[in-house]
Design a protein around this nucleic acid. Structure first.
Lengths: 205, 205
DNA sequence: TCCTAATTTCATCACCCGTGGAAACTAGTT
DNA sequence: AACTAGTTTCCACGGGTGATGAAATTAGGA
């Protein structure tokens, strides 16, 4: 049990550290998390954190690798026909956040993005890879980014109220009901008609 | 310049401290903000922070007193006839966030609410006082809290994308355009027809 | 068996933290 | 001039921080 050398398989301790860091970043926030506390929760010497991740931001970046569930869940939604894709995306997001493991990572990213450039960059990456993917099939280039941004507002707002703050009816209702409530909006942002933008050409149709 | 005794009017230094704390909480976050840094930015001895606000959470609570602009702006929106109220509320929120002084406070509340119970409580208070007020006039009791919660998701999502993260098209467009884009959704949540809830009585109409 | 590389621990550095108490200073009253 | 109340500064405590570098230990290949 005690003694110095290697213990178990390569990366086993690193995984324990990662898991502990995820929990702490997600609940306490990045700034309020100390490497020592992470090490303690992981049952590991603090120096080991430095050995594997070098610095605190290094640990943050490792923590924020998006889970593979992302690709799968959202790609599936993106493949749906346009008429059902809005609802499919909302449901995919809800499922991701109902899973504690994914939720921890996402929570860390969301809360840290406002303060840490590394987290903000990861957020942008998730945004382009996930939300834009949903929008990109079968829609004109000119509208893609705007529609993706609108969808993002609706989904992010749901997440903040329901999963981060746990405030309001939206936090108490079952996930299916939330999907029923939000799907029409997301579907509208995805494929409905939008007001004219300042930079728009006049509609040729 | 140096020397110990009183300096200027009563509360002048306290205000400088409050302003500095607002800036730091908003940009760096609560946990990452040190009292010493606040004092330094305020041009004040760190001990003075302790003298006026006693503890760090005391300072937080003082910082999070909502600006009076809140009452005014949102109450005005709440008085609008139901058909225009959604748009009026969106515009009121946008105006609040475009004003740096209000935005600093709100940003501190939003980002700290996930970690500090005091901030979460303030968030709930803002939510009930502001969003619920908009919804309460002329709508059945049974729907109020749900509609308020839905409106909250849309507005909060806009705020996160546009003002906190500054991500996506929604962050780059002029405020008026954003209002054009989101007003229909908010209006729908406010007064449109919603899918049946699990707990609903069957519609008597 | 010896050697080598990878892992874990230990000890420590220099620094910043929140809090609190005591002293110095100011202004106003008596 | 003496006193009082309110402000501001100074100082110090105990403790926790992120980050290193060196030593100890293990496992595996030659």
């Amino acid at each position: 049990m005690s003694g110095r050398g290697p213990r178990g398989e390569r990366g086993e301790q690193a995984d324990r550290i990662l898991a502990a860091a995820r929990r702490s970043f997600a609940t306490r926030g990045y700034a309020a998390t100390s490497l020592r506390a992470v090490a303690l929760e992981a049952g590991v010497d603090p120096g080991l954190v430095h050995y594997y991740f070098r610095t605190k931001t290094g640990l943050l970046e490792a923590v924020m690798q998006p889970p593979e569930a992302f690709g799968a869940a959202v790609a599936a939604a993106a493949e749906q026909p346009l008429e059902q894709r809005g609802r499919a995306f909302v449901q995919a997001c809800l499922r991701l956040w109902e899973d504690p493991a994914s939720a921890e990572i996402l929570r860390a990213v969301i809360l840290t993005a406002a303060q840490e450039p590394a987290a903000l960059q990861r957020l942008r990456q998730l945004f382009s890879e996930l939300v834009l993917a949903v929008v990109s099939h079968g829609l004109p280039d000119a509208e893609r980014t705007l529609r993706a941004s609108l969808i993002s507002t609706q989904v992010v707002g749901m997440v903040m109220n329901r999963y981060i703050w746990q405030v309001g009816d939206i936090a108490a209702l079952p996930a299916d009901t939330v999907a029923d409530l939000l799907a029409p909006t997301v579907q509208h942002y995805l494929a409905g008609s939008l007001p004219a933008q300042p930079g728009d050409r006049p509609d040729p149709g």
